[in-house]
Nucleic acid binder design. Structure first.
Lengths: 339, 339
DNA sequence: GGTTAGCACTCTCAGGGCGAGAGTGCTAAC
DNA sequence: GTTAGCACTCTCGCCCTGAGAGTGCTAACC
């Protein structure tokens, strides 16, 4: 434990440094906080604090900076037990009342509020539970030899998977299978599914095994998705030496509507479109170039493959790669929608 | 149209500048490409190119840099019609054979391959189709007064939504409603749903309206999600003046397993955990701090709310905000799982 | 013994000066 | 139309310097 005075000094160093991002010196500390002692005394104490590893000096003749250990001590013993002002709480809560009622979007909102509130990166993960269980199953006809398995898990999570079938079936059969499995597998977790998979045969067995794989992946936390916000806030902090151009890129990326900003509709049927710098309709994109291509069948569903970079770009290579990947994805999709 | 020689010079300027990120000068251009003419000639031509707006000078006595118009001309007329080497194509294709068979993940893979291949940001959107149609509907019992609507759209997209019901129902009823709606609404698009919503009453009407809202949102492209990769690649380019610390942050973020890296299991039931700098088990996180809290009921599903930033952080504020938001999310979740 | 004034010392940082280097445009001759 | 030559401009890296900030030590003081 630190003596009371040393602790007080450490507290001041931490809070000043957090605020200014500048190493804090003994002289400054007395001046800013009107301490009753002289800077020499502070210096003596600081020397001790440094010996014990709570603070460190970037170089001689610089002020002190808290070490990890210093921060830890601060968090553990020195930090005022802060709580948000009532007003701020109300402001935050308010935003949740206005939003949609989709839980998923609430999480995104939480991340966004958090990031803006503390000017750092905020992460909010989707909920998950160790022992995933099947709540409901549905199988949808796609083609004669493929079907979409939709599984609702106990914690209101929906997982889907395309299955390739060994023999042709119709929706009627699929619905019946789903109905039987719903009775048999309600509330089943991984071990129960293993058991059931041994017992069941044919289509039912195949579906059960797919369910098992879904549940196992869930248990392994493989698909835990996190909403991330505030990268721009963080990179704007002085320790990252932010450059003008970098921040303007971050602005473009933080824009939630980036995918919508892609001029997909204007794409030629085949081939690659290039938008360079000031040709962009959006102000923010004026420093960047975009190389993009559509994928998917001409009259069917489709999306786009794109590259975003500075106007200084290897256009030839970019175009060739975008084109090739859009072809690959188109191929994959044809296989999925089958024929 | 540019004269042949001027076009050739523009091409050299573009390709040299793309490679080096340095303004290119007349002397250098003749030396590097062993031109038959002198630098003075090049200078004359360059002066013309600048007059016509194809290139520009950052300042007197700097070399020339292509303008947006210059790049455009390059892309339109000067660019060699590049195609990827067969070997490279094979390398790319190979990765698609190894991966899972989930279309969604293929798109992520495409983005990742693209980003690494051209060292820029890659975007790949999920497929979408202008006139969304309902393919299959399922309704899952959650609580007496809430149900989960799962809709499969024509283009194999699954959308879910929690519905609050006006009167208590059981799974039996829900299944019947779903079955009737599946017959009535197969292949329905937005206008058809509007029509049906008018005709149908009670629970069926409510579900149809929810479906309508889902389809409308889909048509508006509101949920077009894009896989984004390669932010780090791009920020490492010289025009962004990348700093050491920034790149190390990007490394942490590009790590796909970031959510898994959060030590959720070790979280206390209530309260907030703080991990500072070198306390992290992961090498890469050593320069950063993490403030995190669990949300969700103690024995039910849950996730985590976290802040990631440099060790220089307003811990007090961060802790208070994380705590408050985890409480809010916990509350929302309780309402969802109801009681 | 703790505190402090005084002081010599160290190191960074911003600014100025300077020369090298790169690049330009112009002119006159080929 | 091309080019050698030249004067000119501007950046950039380097060095130097002085100011400023900060430190540790010592000796005196309470």
């Amino acid at each position: 434990m630190l003596s009371e005075r040393r602790a007080a000094i450490l507290r001041l160093i931490v809070s000043d440094y957090v605020e200014s991002a500048q190493p804090v010196g003994s002289e400054n500390i007395v001046r800013r906080h009107q301490l009753e002692v002289s800077s020499a005394t502070i210096r003596n104490e600081m020397a001790r604090l440094e010996e014990e590893g709570f603070i460190l000096q970037p170089h001689t003749s610089a002020g002190r900076v808290p070490s990890d250990r210093g921060y830890r001590y601060f968090v553990e013993y020195l930090m005022p037990d802060e709580d948000l002002a009532l007003q701020e709480k109300r402001r935050i809560l308010h935003q949740f009342y206005q939003a949609t009622s989709e839980f998923h979007e609430w999480l995104g909102l939480a991340a966004s509020v958090l990031a803006r509130s503390v000017r750092n990166i905020a992460l909010v993960t989707e909920p998950s539970e160790p022992g995933a269980r099947v709540k409901h199953v549905q199988i949808v006809f796609l083609t004669e030899t493929s079907a979409l398995l939709v599984a609702v898990l106990q914690d209101v999570k929906v997982r889907e998977r395309v299955m390739t079938l060994t023999e042709p079936v119709d929706q009627e059969t699929l619905t019946q299978v789903a109905s039987r499995l719903n009775d048999a597998l309600r509330g089943a977790d991984a071990p129960a599914l293993v058991h059931a998979a041994h017992r069941l045969e044919g289509l039912e067995g195949q579906v059960t095994e797919t369910l098992l794989r879904i549940v196992e992946e869930e248990d392994a936390g493989q698909h835990v998705h996190a909403h991330m916000e505030g990268v721009r806030e963080l990179l704007a902090q002085p320790e990252f030496h932010p450059s003008e151009k970098m921040l303007s890129l971050m602005d473009v990326l933080d824009e939630r509507r980036l995918p919508q900003a892609l001029p997909i509709r204007e794409l030629p049927e085949h081939g690659v479109a290039v938008v360079i710098g000031r040709e962009h309709s959006q102000e923010r994109m004026r420093e960047f170039s975009l190389v993009l291509a559509r994928y998917g069948a001409a009259d069917g569903p489709g999306g786009c493959v794109a590259i975003l970079g500075p106007t200084r770009m290897q256009y030839g290579r970019a175009i060739a790669t975008v084109r090739y990947l859009s072809e690959i994805v188109t191929g994959l999709m044809e296989r999925l929608y089958a024929s």
